Computed example of a mutant assay.
Amino acid sequence: MEEGNKFVERVAKYYGWNLEGADGARMMLNMATSYAVVKALMPLRLVLCVWMTPWTATRVVSPTMNFWRRFKK
């Protein structure tokens, strides 16, 4: 646990994060929780991406490509 706290303090110092008064263990818990939330939401993100692909292709990609084709000519 002590090594983890030291690591967090080094990373925080490197990136310029202010950890004055923050407990290293609490910081580790926050980082682990945010990582877990992001990983738990991954399936939802994948489903949304697959679901939105046809709309994005027809509404965004195709008009953009048509614009560039006309612009080149």
Rank of each mutant, 00 (worst) to 15 (best):
N66T: 13
R59Y: 04
E20V: 09
A32C: 04
V8L: 09
V47S: 03
T33W: 02
K72H: 07
E3A: 15
A25R: 04
A57N: 06
F7V: 13
M28E: 05
M31C: 09
N18T: 12
S34V: 13
E20S: 15
G4R: 02
T56K: 05
T33Q: 07
A25K: 09
V47T: 12
L44V: 14
K39D: 14
Y15Q: 06
M42W: 07
L19N: 03
C49T: 14
E3R: 14
A22Q: 06
A57Y: 03
L19S: 01
M1I: 11
L44Y: 05
R69Y: 00
M52D: 11
L19T: 14
K13G: 05
P63V: 10
N18C: 06
G24E: 05
Y14N: 08
Y14S: 07
S34R: 07
L29S: 10
R70Y: 04
V11D: 01
R59V: 10
R45K: 09
S62I: 15
V38Y: 08
V37G: 00
L48G: 07
T58V: 09
T64C: 14
A40H: 04
G4S: 06
K72C: 07
K39Y: 09
W68N: 12
L19P: 00
N18P: 02
A40T: 07
K6A: 15
G24K: 04
L29W: 00
M65Y: 04
M27Q: 12
T56R: 05
P54V: 01
P63Y: 01
M27R: 06
L46I: 15
R70V: 10
V60R: 12
L46C: 07
T56S: 08
A32I: 05
M28G: 01
A36G: 03
N30L: 14
M28C: 05
V47E: 10
M31S: 08
A12E: 03
L48R: 04
W68M: 15
G21D: 03
A57V: 15
P63S: 08
Y35Q: 15
M52Y: 07
M28L: 15
P54H: 01
G24T: 04
G21P: 04
G21Y: 02
L44I: 13
